[in-house]
Amino acid sequence: MANALEYKDVAFSYGEGGFRMEHLNFSVAEGELVAVLGHNGSGKSTLARLANGLLTPDGGEISVFGTVLREKNLFDIRKQVGIVFQNPDSQAVASIVEDDVAFGAENVGLPRKEIGERIGYALRAVGMEEYRTATISRLSGGQKQRVAIAGVLALRPKIMILDEATAMLDPRGRREIAEVVKQLNEREGITVLLITHFMEEALLCSRAVVMNRGEIVMEDAPANIFRRGEELLTYQLALPRIGEIANRLRAGGMNVADALDVDTLAEEIAKCVS
């Protein structure tokens, strides 16, 4: 079976002297939840924008469920690959929640009745159904991003890319989005590419890749990646403090499992001590 998303030998650059990506090979299987980690300018957003034709590769090809992305099937690909961006304040087109969620569905020319149903479905999926007629500018950051996710969901995509969608949110907003992402993946079976520089979020995922200068430099289960703290530092990524403590404990001979929150680590330590 074809991969949900496949980058084959992809090359891209923003012009002379700038960022370059060469021979990028990367694939995501259907139903996977993959984290893409990397510091600013590592090429992770470029990866997202290449996936639905917002950027065109200089070489190589990108395919979605086996269909190679071309100028002429751009529209069909965009229906399948949705992207949620970073800034909660510059993605909404309309002032009212339901009008904004309807935007994508209107663009592809769906009949009125179906648009209404899809708004209902999308808002339910992100837990915002009671905000259907609310004014977007009065919502919290996390709620705005959930509306943005709903706007993408209304197109019923098979793949959803979150391009640092939590970067501008407070911890609570980040938790809201993490919850929604997990549910989309588990319940709706949507393949998710979670691009982030918050290492904790990678723990939601079954697989994580680390990017640096347009290259994929690490690729493993998140727990394994977190064990290579020193290597991560060379890519300008710092482990969350708890992960670092866990690593040090291990180095000191205590066999704790991976933990990224205080409670789990405490339990692990308790287990080792008793």
Binding site: V93, E106, N107, P111
Partner: peptide
Amino acid sequence: RRADELGDAMDARCYSGGKNRTKYKK
């Protein structure tokens, strides 16, 4: 900068002008 970001978000949601577009609110 916002205009740029909004443009990308609209593109990503299949916007291509008024042609073949339907309206939810009549």
